[in-house]
Simulated scan of single mutants.
Amino acid sequence: MNIQWYPGHMTKTRRMIAEQLRNVDAVCEILDARIPVSSRNPDVDQLTAGKPRLVVLNRVDQADPEATKRWAAHFRSKGYAVLESNAKGGAGTAKFAAAVRELLADKLRAYAEKGQAGRVVRVMILGIPNVGKSTLINKVAGRKTARTEDRPGVTRSKQWVPIDKGLELLDTPGILWPKFEDQSVGLNLAYTGAVKDDILDVETLGCHLMAYLGERYPDALTAGYKLPSLPQREDGENDIAYGYRLLEAAGRKRGFLISGGEVDTERMAKILLDEFRGGKLGRFTLELPEQGEEAV
């Protein structure tokens, strides 16, 4: 699968990030805690080389807690500061300013020694579309300063947001990369809503997600859809075929039937994606550090 999703404004955004780097003291990269590899733009390391980095693992309320601990330790081992947050609910956001000042402690001491103790610290906020950048900024600022919507591609221009007398944030538009050559990356971004649903057939997407959850989190499916048990995966059965049978089982249990008693699997797929994104099925992490070392 080779998903193409690179609106023209993303080329402009990439150029703006490069131009603004000289105006900031640090970079904050916001990742989706459920997909820390897939939600990292591989261009960011090159674009922001040399700048101190704070990694925010957002949506930890929807991620597997044990996996989040492993990811936090992984990023700290690479020299990044790490903050775990649920920007929508506010958890962790009160610690943001302190995390930035701890990250920049040496620089702030140097400013103080030069008689510049009140100098404003500026941080660039980066992340892919719909990862929660604007929501985080609004929570940290304690007021609505950045536009938010639960769909990708809402922030379209940069804006400086003062947090307090000593801290300003630069909100930037979400930036993806020109294409997803790894199928799992494209699927993970689609599951979580980082790319628009019309990029992929919803039913196919639902089959892939069902197959993954059926293999890794079967108890969540049986509990969420009140199934006595899951259909067993047959030898050699691919993800789409197995996922389709799981969609049928869940849809039948929900009563999503059409003429002839067949299951409306497209409707079930849409429900699955909505419930996955809303955290109604449980807390899932789709990637682990040891699976994607080269990507992080």
Rank of each mutant, 00 (worst) to 15 (best):
P7T: 03
G8I: 05
M10I: 10
T11A: 07
T11W: 12
K12V: 09
T13G: 05
R14G: 10
R14I: 11
R15T: 14
I17C: 08
Q20E: 04
L21M: 14
R22G: 14
R22F: 02
N23A: 14
V27Y: 09
L31Q: 05
D32M: 01
D32T: 06
R34H: 04
I35A: 05
P36G: 00
P42E: 04
D45A: 15
L47V: 14
G50F: 02
P52W: 05
P52Q: 02
V55Y: 13
L57V: 07
N58D: 04
R59K: 15
D64Y: 03
E66I: 02
R70K: 15
W71G: 04
W71V: 06
A72I: 05
A72K: 02
A73H: 13
R76V: 12
K78T: 12
K78S: 15
Y80L: 07
V82W: 04
E84D: 14
S85F: 03
G90A: 03
A94C: 06
L104W: 06
L104K: 00
K107V: 09
G118M: 02
R119Q: 14
V121W: 00
M124V: 11
L126Y: 03
P129R: 01
V131L: 06
T135V: 12
L136F: 03
N138E: 00
V140E: 00
V140P: 01
T148S: 10
E149Q: 04
T155N: 06
R156D: 10
R156G: 08
S157D: 14
G166F: 11
E168Y: 00
L170M: 09
D171R: 00
K179N: 03
F180C: 08
E181P: 01
Q183K: 12
S184G: 04
S184Q: 14
V185Q: 13
N188A: 12
E203L: 08
T204E: 09
M210K: 09
E215G: 01
P218T: 07
D219V: 14
G224A: 00
Y225D: 10
K226I: 09
P228E: 09
G236I: 14
G236C: 05
A249F: 10
R254E: 08
F256T: 12
F256M: 15
I258C: 03
S259A: 15
D264C: 11
A269F: 10
K270M: 03
I271K: 13
L272I: 08
D274E: 15
E275H: 11
F276R: 13
F276E: 12
K280E: 08
L281R: 01
L281Q: 04
R283H: 04
R283Q: 15
F284L: 09
L286H: 05
E287W: 07
L288V: 05
L288I: 03
L288Q: 08
P289L: 06
P289G: 08
E290V: 02
G292E: 15
